[in-house]
Design a protein around this nucleic acid. Structure first.
Length: 231
DNA sequence: GCGACAG
DNA sequence: ATCTTGTCGC
C-alpha cells in the first residue's frame, strides 16, 4: 500500500475547485473512439472512506479485457483531502486514485471510474477529470442518475436510453442485466459514448456493475479495514 | 431561500 | 460513502 501525496495547489475551497474545473474541462478529448472492447487491459478504480479517522483508501485493479482475469492491483492510503460536495467529487477521490494508479506495475489501459464523466452539472465529472490529469482513456459508470432525466430502458440486457440534461444527451442509462436497474454510463476522456457502453456491457456479463468496479470496490474496502495508522 | 444531489 | 440482520434466491 503506497501513501497518497496531495498534489501541490490542490483546491481547499469550493470556489477554488470550480475554478480548476473551468481551467481543465477544455482539455477533454472527445473525438477518439477509444480502445476496442475485449482487447488489452481495463482498470477499475474506487475509493473507501473512514471519515471518523480521516482516512481514505483507493484501489486500482487491472483486468485482462478478454478474460476479465485480474492481472495486477494496487492500493493507496492517505487523509481525506476534500469534503463530499455533489459536483466536486473528484477533489475528494482523485489524489488517492492517482497514487494507486502510479503504484501499478503495468499500464492500466482504459480506466473505469465509479461516478460520472461528462454527465455532470459542469460537464466535468471525476472520470473526465482523471482522464485529463493522466492522459488515459476513461469512462464513468455510476449507480444513480444524479440530477439527470432518463426514460426507463427496455427490459433486455443491452437496452439503453439517453441520459438527458435538457435536450443534451450527456450519457446513457444502460441495462447490463435483464430486468435489473440500469447503470449510468458517460464519457470521460478519449472514448466515444457508444464505445463506453460497449465496454460496460462486456465488463458486466453476470452482475449489474462492471467487474472493474466490483473488484476495485472489494479491494479498497478490504484495505481500509486493514488500515491502522495514517501519518 | 429551500431542496436535491455521483461517492 | 457508511451505519446494519436476517433473508430470499441462484
Amino acid at each position: 500500500m503506497t501513501t497518497v501525496r496531495i498534489p501541490a495547489g490542490w483546491p481547499a475551497t469550493e470556489a477554488q475547485a470550480r475554478a480548476v474545473q473551468d481551467e481543465l474541462r477544455g482539455r477533454v478529448v472527445l473525438d477518439e473512439p477509444g480502445p476496442p472492447p475485449g482487447t488489452g487491459r481495463v482498470t477499475g478504480v474506487d475509493v473507501a472512506y473512514d471519515d471518523e479517522r480521516d482516512v481514505v483508501v483507493a484501489a486500482a485493479v487491472v483486468l485482462d479485457a478478454a478474460t476479465l482475469d485480474v492481472v495486477a492491483e494496487s492500493t493507496a492510503v492517505g487523509r481525506v483531502p476534500f469534503p463530499y460536495v455533489p459536483g466536486l467529487l473528484a477533489f475528494r477521490e482523485l489524489p488517492a486514485v492517482l497514487a494507486a494508479l502510479d503504484a501499478l506495475p503495468c499500464e492500466p489501459g482504459l480506466v473505469v471510474c465509479d461516478g460520472y464523466g461528462l454527465a455532470h452539472p459542469r460537464r466535468f465529472g471525476l472520470a473526465a477529470h482523471l482522464g485529463v490529469l493522466t492522459g488515459l482513456p476513461t469512462i464513468g459508470v455510476a449507480k444513480n442518475p444524479f440530477t439527470f432525466a432518463y426514460e426507463e430502458p427496455d427490459a433486455p440486457r443491452g437496452s439503453s436510453s439517453p441520459l438527458l440534461a435538457g435536450e443534451e444527451e450527456v450519457g446513457r442509462a444502460l441495462r447490463t442485466q435483464q430486468d435489473v436497474k440500469p447503470v449510468f454510463v458517460s464519457v470521460g476522456h478519449r472514448v466515444s459514448l457508444d464505445n463506453a457502453c460497449a465496454h460496460t456491457l462486456r465488463l458486466a456479463p453476470r452482475f449489474r456493475l462492471p467487474e472493474t468496479t466490483r473488484r476495485a470496490d472489494a479491494l479498497c474496502r478490504k484495505a481500509l479495514k486493514a488500515t491502522e495508522y495514517v501519518v
